[in-house]
C-alpha cells in the first residue's frame, strides 16, 4: 500500500499541470479581437503628417500592417527599428493613439518615419473601434481590408515568424 501511496502526489501534480496548461490557453490577457475576419472599421480622421482627411478608402490595397503606437509608449520605441525594416517588405500604416501632435511628430523626426500613412487618433476613437487596449498593438489587414490578426505588445522577428508570416502566406 505504501508503495502505491508515494505515487499519489505525482498523480495529483500531473492533474494540476493539465489544468494549468489549459489555463494558459485560456489566458485572459490574450484578448481575441472581435474584429478578426471583420472589415476594417469606418473612420474619418486626419493624417498626422499632412493634416489631410483620411478614411478607410485610402488604406493600402495590398496586405499591410496597422501599427498602433504613441510617443509615451516605451515598447513602441523598442519595436520601431524592426518595423522600419519590415516597411521595406510591406506597407506599415501608423495609428498614432492618444497622443499629441507635437510629441508624435518629434518622435518620428528623431527615430525616422517608416509609415506609409499616419492616422492621427488623439482621442483614441478608432482605437476603441479596433478594441485596442494599449500600445503597441499591431493588426494584419488583407488587400480587401479584412483584419486577420491582432498582436498585443512588441513586434519582433520572433513574433513575425511565429504569428504574422503564417497568416500572411494564407492571404497573399
Amino acid at each position: 500500500m505504501n508503495r502505491l501511496m508515494v505515487w499519489l502526489p505525482l498523480c495529483i501534480f500531473a492533474i494540476l499541470v493539465g489544468f494549468f496548461f489549459k489555463g494558459l490557453s485560456l489566458n485572459p490577457n490574450e484578448q481575441p479581437s472581435a474584429l478578426i475576419g471583420q472589415p476594417f472599421p469606418v473612420f474619418g480622421l486626419t493624417d498626422l503628417m499632412t493634416g489631410e482627411r483620411l478614411t478607410r478608402e485610402q488604406l493600402p490595397r495590398q496586405p499591410y500592417l496597422l501599427n498602433v503606437w504613441a510617443s509615451w509608449c516605451i515598447t513602441c520605441q523598442v519595436e520601431h527599428p524592426y518595423l522600419t525594416q519590415l516597411s521595406k517588405q510591406m506597407p506599415v500604416v501608423g495609428l498614432n493613439y492618444k497622443d499629441t501632435e507635437t510629441a508624435a511628430k518629434n518622435w518620428l523626426a528623431k527615430l525616422g518615419d517608416p509609415y506609409a500613412l499616419q492616422i492621427f487618433d488623439p482621442t483614441g476613437r478608432l482605437g476603441l473601434d479596433l478594441g485596442v487596449a494599449g500600445a503597441p498593438e499591431t493588426f494584419l489587414v488583407d488587400s480587401k481590408g479584412v483584419i486577420h490578426l491582432r498582436i498585443q505588445g512588441e513586434v519582433n522577428d520572433r513574433v513575425y515568424a511565429k504569428k504574422i508570416q503564417p497568416v500572411l502566406e494564407t492571404i497573399q
Binding site: P28, Q31, A34, P41
Partner: peptide, 14 residues
C-alpha cells in the same frame, strides 16, 4: 472582455 466578446460588440463600442 468576456462580456464584450460574448455580445460581439467590441467592434461597435463607439
Amino acid at each position: 472582455t468576456e462580456a464584450l466578446r460574448q455580445s460581439g460588440k467590441l467592434d461597435q463600442m463607439m
